[in-house]
């Protein structure tokens, strides 16, 4: 469940980050302003507040809509969706900066060469910009992933049964909190070490064409 919620949030975040980076690089003044405000605000407030906003705030928005369609009582997002959305929105701000930085390292010459060979904008984006940006963004993406993984522990406040919530339940019923929270810590350690290892493998794979200084 931890991995599922973290992965969903990660995907949401990368979509938002792509949009944000696009707005910051190629957007007009309005789009850039919105993206700047978004990254400043989301990187300046605690993640826990954002999770509360999505978990409790979603019902404030959804209940009137639900009423309109004839639903009775309270409508709210399930913990999983609210949590994944919150993680996505928070990590989206970090994604934006990672993608923007990576795009800026793509050399102008390669873009010009693509235009010169007559690629359309879409083809150029798909064949040149995306692979190169991803290659440069990989270390940054690894950082964001580790952060998202640790953030997913906060989702336990919404009652979603992921690693931490499960160990809270177990700690409560067995009265051995140290044992179970330690087990949770070890699980996170294993997940982050394993993903760190595969990320460095991926980095070695995708930068094999680069000359080392």
């Amino acid at each position: 469940m931890t991995i599922a919620v973290a992965l969903t949030g990660f995907v949401f975040g990368s979509l938002i980050g792509t949009l944000g980076a696009w707005a910051k690089i190629g957007g007009g003044a309005l789009a850039r302003g919105v993206a700047d405000a978004y990254t400043t605000v989301l990187r300046g407030i605690p993640d826990l507040l954002v999770i509360y906003l999505f978990y409790f705030g979603s019902s404030a928005v959804l209940t009137p809509i639900g009423r309109f369609f004839g639903a009775e009582g309270f409508v709210s997002l399930p913990g999983f969706l609210a949590g994944a959305l919150a993680i996505g929105v928070v990590s989206g701000a970090y994604f934006t900066e990672v993608f923007r930085g990576a795009y800026n390292t793509v050399s102008r010459g390669e873009l010009e060469a693509a235009t010169a060979t007559g690629m359309t904008r879409l083809l150029r984006f798909r064949r040149i910009v995306v692979p190169l940006t991803l290659r440069f963004a990989l270390p940054g993406l690894g950082n964001v992933w580790q952060q998202v993984l640790k953030e997913s522990a906060l989702i336990s406040v919404t009652g979603l049964v992921e690693i931490l919530r499960q160990s809270q339940i177990a700690a409560g019923s067995t009265r051995q909190p140290f044992t179970f929270f330690m087990a949770a810590a070890v699980l996170y350690l294993v997940i982050s070490t394993a993903s760190g290892w595969s990320l460095s493998r991926a980095e070695a794979h995708f930068t094999r064409g680069l000359r080392r200084a």
Binding site: Q146, K150, E151, S156, Y188, T193
Partner: peptide, 14 residues
């Protein structure tokens, strides 16, 4: 490589 919340729980409850 472990979440801060887990560390807090380990110390406070654990």
């Amino acid at each position: 490589s472990t979440p801060l919340l887990v560390q807090i729980f380990l110390i406070y409850y654990g």
